[in-house]
Simulated scan of single mutants.
Amino acid sequence: MLRHGQSFDPELDDQGCVLYPGGQEPMELGLLFRPYAFMEAGDEVADADGATWRFAHPWSWRSPQGQSGVPVWPLALRTRGGRRVEGEPVVSATVGGSHEGEEDTWRGLTGAEPVAP
């Protein structure tokens, strides 16, 4: 876990602190925001420009050709768990907004920059 305002640094081996849920210190945890809550790792989408992208985690998108970048919203889910998807569970979540909007919400809540490991 990182402190508020601290961005992840993929170059550091030891960063942040560890929570011990079974420890003596009282703690309360609550989810404030989950970027791309409508996506699952490994989902494949088509973006508004017709490009195909694979979702690894919120700040890591890859094209099948290995290119990095970000998809243009809205997104249409093609596969989930390696299977074709019926319906459009992702389109309705991405009609409004953008990848940049997800990043901005993250920045506002964490005081940190979103960094892909």
Rank of each mutant, 00 (worst) to 15 (best):
E102M: 14
A48T: 04
P114L: 11
R84Y: 09
S7E: 06
F33T: 03
A37R: 14
R34F: 07
P74A: 13
A37H: 15
D13Q: 11
H4L: 10
A37K: 15
G30W: 13
G97A: 06
L32S: 09
L2N: 09
T110C: 05
W73G: 00
Q67H: 11
Y20K: 11
W106E: 04
S68F: 15
P89Q: 11
V85P: 07
V85W: 09
P74R: 04
G69C: 05
G101V: 08
R80T: 09
L19V: 03
S60M: 07
G96L: 12
C17V: 02
L109C: 09
Q24W: 14
W61K: 01
L77Y: 10
Q24C: 05
E28G: 01
C17M: 08
E28P: 00
G5M: 09
L2F: 11
P58E: 09
D14N: 01
L77A: 08
W106N: 01
G111P: 02
V90H: 05
E113R: 15
G66T: 00
V70F: 14
S7P: 03
W73Q: 06
C17G: 09
V91G: 01
R84D: 08
G82R: 05
R78E: 14
R3C: 02
V72P: 01
L32G: 02
T110R: 05
V70L: 06
D47Y: 13
V70W: 10
G108Q: 15
G16F: 08
L29S: 06
L32A: 10
D14W: 07
V45C: 08
S63L: 02
S7D: 03
S92L: 14
G81M: 13
P89W: 14
V90Y: 10
Q15K: 06
Q15L: 03
W59V: 08
E11P: 00
R80V: 12
P10R: 15
R62P: 00
A56T: 05
Q15W: 08
C17S: 10
R3E: 09
P10L: 09
P71M: 02
L2S: 08
E40D: 11
H4I: 06
E28Y: 13
G96Q: 14
G69E: 06
L75K: 08
A116L: 07
